[in-house]
Design a protein around this nucleic acid. Structure first.
Length: 911
RNA sequence: GAGCGCGUAGCUCAGGGGGAGAGCGCUUGCUUGACGCGCAAGAGGUCGCAGGUUCAAAUCCUGCCGCGCUCACCA
């Protein structure tokens, strides 16, 4: 007896014992650091930077699992793989969080002043900003942590300034007085994208604006007459804005109002005369067909106001409080004002009626406050010229969007793009590099802080207090992180990046803007592919949210089930174009899979009695058995399919393939087939089998590694202890599975014949097991089975694999009979009848039922096939091979039907 | 209003013009020398509905129904 190996695996896999260890190992060894001097092709991903304030949620887990799969796969494939990690300063979000924190101490940010507040935020970031990075690491993310970046770090700050300055000089950035979305709670302007529309129940108020009646002398007087012809009724959802009305617009084609165009109405409350104007855009069907125009507080009205040169009257301040232009309502909050005004108007007879109305209300996407369109001086990016190359790049495929369906969404948005308001009235962020001159009012824009105004050389200059939209800096991420605007080796080697992995909800916010910025500033697309993955929802398909209490916290999951189980679950569900409904039971299921792999390995370890036998894991030169050939064929086919699926971003398919191979092929069949050999006396055969076991196990681990890095590393390291090395000859490359080379498809390991043979034997075994179950034989009891093959070939195959049938079906096989036994239950498969003789113990009636059911199924198929074959059109038009196949099918099924009927006949005789 | 996606086994989902698939759940049997987070054998489906194209439709086309999402200044 040879020396028993000393490495034994525990009975159950415990992720807690291994994950942290390998994490540290990988990072310490620097396996994930990319090289700028490598000759190998590069593969680059930049992480969608999570908010520094953030904590890992399930969406991050999915997003980063997918990126990690790609990076680990490419790294193993020999690419110079770089995954750049980092975080985003998340202006409004972070400021809000810190402000809330301060408020607990009774401090407002104004109390600290700008500098003091920024210091406070930085302190906060130091304390909590690293949290999500630690969490990403624990997920197993194989980022190059030595290159971690932050959107507010020095390099990226320079990038932001540089981009701003260039855009300004080219006229791509301008400053102007426009109507913008303003959040009174966050106290800042927002871009269009930062406003979400929500279905809200509101009311439609009908207001009566008296006409100014003009007498023959041309003098006007106010009419208080209630008769219909003397006023216009306008409908509005926002009566409190009426003080800002500067016109009433009607459609010029509208017969009801035609005669009033050019006349004036008197605006209640403020008693201002405003004109009735004609505008095509007014919908006659809508409301009363007369539209109050409030250019300073409504986007559509702003447009109309411009066309007709109407004055803009602002009636509230940036906090949403009514100002002096609101007359008696001065000082009231906008919603209180609405209440009050409705009450007052009702009394005064100005309010004609009120209707329930549902509308899409714009709300701040950060805090949910109703957004107020406000007239203010802001900075904008002129997006049209930037969008054109960004559209072209996707049109001509320089950047691919996967799944393709999102292309349309991208185009749709890009083609209708509007200028981007980039200034924010907050403190936390990149301060706009523009200085105003107090003497000449000129603007100096510069990367370096200027001493003088570039227009009049005055020293009396002051920097803009606004900061930039966080997405402005995020848009520079793919090249800013690689050193831009410096001309770095990194940019040369790693730009354009290979793929961006993200979810569709930031397609416009981020992806589109990176495209525009990358093409403008780098003169090339920021990434070759954009892979858009699903949203993770709860098991009912609802969005996870803290308020609903249906969140699945990835940290809890990793703690309970291990990072690998979580990663595998997300991967298995990551089908393109479909949301992920995640539940605990799914994760439990894949935890079982991890345990299965563990135990398959445990089995292998237990059956390696000699290190020599396992040192080399190559299979060439061995006198392979049929099952060996079968599993190698299956392995190679799986390798090929996995590779395809990964290249196509079909991650669900990848995980299914691995799952099926490891569990369905390797564990359920190969290991079982091979057990007698391992327990047998044939030393050569045993050694050979051990080699194949190790070979298939290690390849499986490698295939699985990108999805489940921890368990695969753990088992791999244990194999190493035994002296097993992965196929690479380079000792360094075998230190860790994460840098070993990914299995390659090898056509020399495809054995068609052996493969088909085992597939057939599997059917025989299942057939026998089925008979055993029917008769109710105890699993441990051996049965006698009679096989009647149709032809010599089947006879040979069954004969050659008799011992496998014997061990897997617990059956002694008799192949020498020439006729059917008298009393037996039977199974018919292609080319073979399987009999299990009985002593009348079986429930004949039940068995007759079963056979009948099966016959009727076959009959149905036979008829269907026959119908096809007797259809002249089919024979004429269907392709040759289809007809051929159909004929074979017909033969086979007819034969089966015939045999089954015979079986039935025999059974009836017993009965 | 425009656009997109999805309706396949009880549940979650693959598949995608020529013999309906997986996992979970369910039923039955198992202290099988890797694993009960397991093994084996089963039951379970007019592939949303109606038309059309085709020799052939779960699969392609059209319409409808249901669910979801995105975009849009409709008072």
């Amino acid at each position: 007896m040879e020396e028993a190996n000393k490495i034994e695996l525990e009975k159950t896999y415990d992720p807690k014992k291994v994950e942290e260890k390998w994490l540290e190992f990988w990072i310490k060894k620097g396996y994930f650091q990319a090289s700028i001097s490598s000759q190998r092709p590069s593969f680059t991903i930049v992480i969608p930077p999570p908010n520094v304030t953030g904590s890992l949620h399930i969406g991050h887990a999915l997003n980063n699992t997918i990126q990690d799969i790609l990076v680990r796969y490419k790294r193993m494939k020999g690419f110079n793989a770089l995954w750049v990690p980092g975080t985003d300063h998340a202006g409004i979000a972070t400021q809000t969080v810190v402000e809330r924190e301060l408020l607990k101490e009774g401090i407002k940010r104004e109390d600290l002043g700008r500098e003091g507040f920024i210091k406070r935020v930085l302190k906060w970031k130091e304390l909590y900003g690293n949290r999500i990075i630690v969490q990403l690491k624990s997920l197993g993310a194989s980022c190059d942590w030595s290159r971690e970046r932050f959107t507010m770090d020095e390099g990226l700050s320079i990038a932001v300034k540089e981009a701003f300055v260039r855009f300004w000089r080219e006229g791509l950035i301008y400053r102007g007085h426009y109507l913008v979305n303003f959040c009174p709670r966050c106290d800042t302007a927002l871009s269009d994208l930062e406003v979400t529309r929500e279905d809200t129940k509101g009311r439609l108020y009908y207001l009566r604006y008296p006409l100014v009646s003009t007498d023959k002398n041309g003098q006007s007087e106010t009419s208080r007459d209630d008769s219909a012809s003397l006023h216009i009724i306008v409908a509005t959802t926002r009566p409190e804005t009426m003080m800002g009305d500067t016109a009433v617009a009607v459609n010029p084609k509208d017969e009801r109002y035609k005669h009033l165009i050019g006349k004036e109405v008197i605006l209640p409350v403020v008693n201002r005369k405003i004109p009735v104007i004609a505008n095509e855009s007014v919908d006659m069907e809508m409301g009363t067909g007369a539209l109050k125009i409030t250019p300073a507080h409504d986007f559509a009205d702003f447009e109309i106001g411009n066309k007709h040169a109407l004055p803009r009257v602002q009636i509230m301040d940036f906090k949403g409080v009514m100002n002096e232009n609101a007359g008696i309502y001065n000082g009231l909050d906008r919603f209180e004002c609405r209440k009050q005004i409705v009450e007052d108007f009702e009394k005064e007879g100005i309010l004609e009626k009120v209707e329930d109305y549902s509308l899409q209300l714009g709300k701040c996407y950060r805090c949910g406050t109703v957004v107020e369109p406000m007239l203010s001086l802001q900075w904008f990016v002129r997006t049209k010229p930037l969008s054109i190359p960004a559209i072209q790049a996707v049109e001509d495929g320089r950047t691919r969007i996967i799944p393709e369906g999102w292309k349309n969404t991208y185009f749709e948005w890009m083609r209708n793009i509007r200028d981007w308001c980039i200034s924010r009235q907050i403190w936390w962020g990149h301060r706009i590099p523009a200085w105003f001159c107090k003497d000449c009012e000129g603007i100096t824009v510069s990367v370096e802080e200027p001493n003088v105004c570039e227009h009049c050389t005055s020293h009396n200059i002051e920097q803009e207090t606004d900061v930039l939209d966080t997405w402005f800096s995020s848009a520079l991420w793919p090249f800013g992180t690689l050193g831009w605007p410096r001309k770095t080796k990194e940019l040369e080697v790693f730009y354009p990046t290979s793929v961006l992995v993200t979810s569709f909800d930031i397609l416009f916010f981020w992806v589109a803007r990176m495209m525009m910025m990358g093409l403008k500033l780098m003169n090339d697309v920021p990434f070759r592919d954009v892979y858009i993955h699903a949203l993770v929802r709860d098991e009912k398909g609802e969005k996870m949210s803290k308020t609903k209490g249906n969140v699945i916290d990835p940290l809890d999951i990793m703690d309970e089930f291990g990072a690998d189980a979580l990663r595998f679950s997300l991967t298995a569900l990551a089908a393109q174009g479909r949301d992920i409904k995640l539940s605990l039971s799914i994760i439990e299921g894949y935890r079982s899979f991890m345990n299965k792999i563990w135990n398959a390995s445990r089995f292998v370890f237990m059956n390696l009695d000699n290190v020599e036998a396992t040192r080399r894991v190559v299979s060439t030169g061995l006198n392979l058995s049929t099952p060996d050939k079968w599993i190698l064929t299956k392995l190679n086919r799986t390798i090929q399919e996995i590779e395809n699926s990964l290249e196509e971003y079909e991650f669900d398919k990848t995980s299914r393939l691995i799952y099926q191979f490891i569990w369905g092929d390797f564990c359920d069949w190969y290991i079982e087939l091979v057990k007698p050999i391992l327990n047998g006396d044939d030393l050569e055969a045993r050694k050979r089998t051990q080699a194949i076991l190790v070979r298939v196990l290690s390849s499986s681990l490698q295939l699985l590694h990108p999805i489940a890095p921890f368990i695969t590393e753990e088992i791999y390291q244990r194999l190493r202890e035994l002296g097993v090395r992965m196929s690479s000859t380079d000792e360094e490359e075998t230190e860790s599975i994460s840098i070993s080379s990914y299995p390659n498809f090898n056509k020399d390991e495809i054995y068609e014949e052996a493969f088909d043979e085992i597939e057939y034997i599997k059917e025989v075994i299942v057939g026998i097991r089925s008979l055993r179950a029917i008769v109710g034989v105890h699993p441990s009891k051996m049965v006698d089975i009679i096989l009647l093959p149709d032809n010599k070939k089947i006879l040979e195959i069954t004969q050659a694999n008799k011992n496998f049938i014997h061990s897997l079906a617990k059956a002694s096989i008799d192949l020498s009979r020439e006729e059917k036994p008298k009393k037996a239950v039977a199974q018919v498969i292609e080319g073979l009848q399987i009999f299990l003789p009985i002593d009348g113990l079986v429930d004949v009636e039940k068995e007759v039922e079963r056979i009948k059911r099966e016959i009727s199924k076959v009959v149905k198929d036979v008829e269907l096939t026959n119908r096809k074959l007797s259809n002249p059109d089919f024979l004429e038009r269907a392709p040759e091979d289809v007809i051929e196949k159909e004929k074979e099918k017909f033969e086979e099924l007819s034969l089966k039907k015939h045999k089954m009927e015979e079986v039935l006949q025999k059974l009836s005789e017993i009965g």
